[in-house]
Design a protein around this nucleic acid. Sequence first.
DNA 1: GCATATAGTGCCTAAAAGTATACTGTCGGA
DNA 2: TCCGACAGTATACTTTTAGGCACTATATGC
Lengths: 130, 130
Amino acid sequence: MNKDKNYDEVPGCTMYAALNLISGKWKGMILYHLLKGTLRFNALKRELGDCSQRLLIKQLRELEEDGLVVRQVFAVIPPKVEYSISEEGRTLAPILLGLRDWGHGWLTRRNLVARDDHLATDDRAISSAG
Amino acid sequence: MNKDKNYDEVPGCTMYAALNLISGKWKGMILYHLLKGTLRFNALKRELGDCSQRLLIKQLRELEEDGLVVRQVFAVIPPKVEYSISEEGRTLAPILLGLRDWGHGWLTRRNLVARDDHLATDDRAISSAG
DNA sequence: GCATATAGTGCCTAAAAGTATACTGTCGGA
DNA sequence: TCCGACAGTATACTTTTAGGCACTATATGC
């Protein structure tokens, strides 16, 4: 989505644009974690676990460019950078949460156990509509 | 999502699984078009326009494997194959439609014109909850 | 007889996405 | 004094994703 900014030339549909915004191996997950609160770079990295540093940076930059994530740099040493979800990003919350719940149902119906650390515990922390 | 079927080993969250199910350049779009009704292979291809035949087949196979799309082969000549959304797939409708509407808002707020052939016209044809 | 439509498959290549590793500079702690 | 934490960057590399073209088989239309 970030490479070619011809969002108006996407093949026919805002679906395509929206999908591209949250595709990319970790973007949905990043957004989802940030819904729960601001995180520093390494804290986010730890949450994600398997995401390489380089990729995480790239995805965060793209999310920032697309106005979904806010990056705040503190001029201190050692460096401190905080990532949080933007107002725009927060409007995605109902969809993200819906997708997560749907995924849970899907995994269950397919008899694939959902090892879901978040489903039951974290919802109170997420204001679903901003 | 289809390569390694260890859905229970996804990094921590059903979000990841759900996201992967509808990622892949055309999957969301395929699902979205099939929400409006059954389509034959070439009809779907025409709807999508820019999607290569080879890729479309691949994505359809994956969606079928994941139980979101139903493929029905008619033993006639020339061949006839119909693709439709499954019951399971239809449960994704509210999320897909939500995503599309959110994308529309996002494009608008960013002053990027949404060339959206579907937004206003097709909703009646889509039963949002199955 | 030839082109076209149907729904694909197979092989090869290009581009995008993602990984691994080493490196930056400064502070605080052992 | 050396190490680790912090938030990255740079370079080289592998893997995955996607695109292009040729080909299958048969019926219909011209």
